[in-house]
Write a protein that binds this DNA or RNA. Structure first.
Length: 233
DNA sequence: AACGGGTTCAACCGCGCAACT
DNA sequence: TAGTTGCGCGGTTGAACCCGT
């Protein structure tokens, strides 16, 4: 007995979306807003799974999605946020206006990860895979993150808390980043609500929890229509 | 031009969680 | 309280594309 499928696969389209399907979805959401993804495909006249509609909207059709290459400063921010949050792509996406979690995840896996590895940085731990020289620490924008000397493989997420006095300036940078995260919630962080709920551990809140708890009360509750701004363009 | 290997990224899958009944 | 439902997430897949030969 497995989990029952989210939709009837025999009667749903799969694979790439056609222009007509896109148009239908956009038209429906413009008129009715989104949410209720399970019932949306039927209401919109689409032979698609609700999850598929949601994904298509969030990652591609949403009017504020920024497409195209990532800027260097975006790369650097992703690296910093990844160091702080781990593979919390939705939270990272919340700090990059117009970027989606899927896009960032792909970009990480195809570009940034490789760049870090080639620079001698373990992309999971953000620790050097080998002792690095002073020159190496200055040679690449991807390596502007300061690192610790602890080389041991850690669980992927969340990243370990910063220890004081690791490197001059690092703690300050970390605090600044956390403050930024805390003070400027973005619409896409409606998703942070679920993160908030799921990131407490028996040992206490993890890093993502500490970040998200600051603005959790600003996040619309489940069921509220919280993304109307997408339709206002 | 054709082929093959590598890369990219849109889409799918299964799971965890909170809300609901 | 237990079972069900729906949403959102991270990981994975595979088709399309790119590039060198």
């Amino acid at each position: 007995m497995g989990r029952k499928p989210c939709c009837d696969k025999a009667h749903t389209n799969r694979g790439s979306w056609s222009k007509e399907e896109d148009d239908r979805l956009i038209h429906y959401i413009r008129l009715n807003g989104h949410g209720f993804w399970r019932s949306l495909p039927k209401a919109a006249g689409l032979l698609r799974c609700g999850k598929s509609c949601r994904l298509r909207w969030i990652n591609y059709l949403r009017p504020d999605v920024k497409r195209g290459n990532f800027a260097i400063d975006e790369d650097e921010l992703i690296i910093k946020l990844h160091k702080l949050l781990g593979n919390k792509w939705s939270l990272i996406a919340g700090r990059l206006p117009g970027r989606t979690d899927n896009e960032i995840k792909n970009h990480w896996n195809t570009h940034i990860r490789r760049k870090l590895i080639s620079g001698g940085i373990n992309p999971k731990t953000h620790q050097p895979t080998k002792p690095i020289t002073t020159e190496e620490t200055n040679c690449s924008s991807a390596l502007t993150i300061t690192t610790t000397t602890d080389n041991t493989e850690k669980p992927q997420q969340p990243p370990p808390k910063q220890q004081p006095n690791q490197f001059p300036g690092e703690e300050e940078e970390h605090i600044n980043l956390e403050l930024t995260l805390a003070l400027f919630p973005t619409p896409s962080e409606s998703t942070a609500e679920s993160k908030l709920r799921r990131t407490t551990t028996p040992d206490g809140p993890d890093e993502a929890f500490l970040v998200t708890k600051h603005y959790s009360n600003l996040i619309p509750k489940r069921g509220e229509k919280n993304n109307q701004h997408y339709l206002e363009t």
